[in-house]
Amino acid sequence: MSIAKRPNPLFRNLNAKIAALPMIATTLVVFLGCSIWTVIYSFSKSRALPVNEFVGFAQYERLFRTSRWLISLENIVIYGVLSLLISFVIGFILAALIDQKIRFEDTFRTIYLYPFALSFIVTGIVWQWILNPSLGIQETVRSWGFENFTFDLIANRGTVLYALLIAGIWQGTGFVMVLMLAGIRGVDREIWNAARIDGIPVWKTYLFVIVPMMRGVMVTTLVIVAAGIVKLYDLVVAMTQGGPGIASEVPAKYVYDFMFARANVGQALAASTVMLTTVLIILIPWVYLEYGKKKAQR
């Protein structure tokens, strides 16, 4: 009956450990194992199938000589920067406006967020149709009598990226807005009283008091949105298929095409390793910041 001996620590909480096995397996096999496998085989000579013949940076050298890859990179950078900038500005403005004790707040919020519930495929196809140069907005406005009206972003190599941007912003801004609104409302309400007593105009209070206090929410939103942008794939497939020509190619599509359509696994793995590196570059400073802060608080 007496239980004086310390049980083997391995079997303490045994049920919890068994229950966590799927998670442990996922982290070890998928998130660590698969990523490491990809990085390692990106240095191999793999073509249609992965092979164990390692060739150093050859795949990367070839990758960065491929114009399609370089265009993909350039596209994602331009798309990423603009999309972050625009969705943050619009998202914050919408959030600040909704915060003004308006009527029908829930209705407006519902309208701004619904595109986020849709698939990128749906978004891409709708906007492909609206921006269709021969039957979409351009034609509609021309039929109203503005014969020279031109709005053919999607058909033009130089502007197709902005067509993607319009669709991407439409889908993603609601998400930014919801987080911003939560951030704004998370700020201590006493701050507003203090600002009013000090006679600071509302817009100034938002810009110089509220925004700096929302740093945490901002940074977190930024990281999530940015990590999503790197994955951009479905929207391009549905809306432009990378065209016209290769004008709207993106890295994620490059990986998919080389992996499954073109049977050049080595290139795909090298490209995805570059994507991984990019994400780590975004992620590591954030983690450093967050963890540093938590430690300082203790």
Binding site: M1, S2, I3, A4, R6
Partner: peptide
């Protein structure tokens, strides 16, 4: 350490 309740050592019970 040890915990004994009603004469039974229950440290790890």
């Amino acid at each position: 350490g040890q915990i004994i309740i009603n004469g039974t050592n229950v440290t790890w019970a």
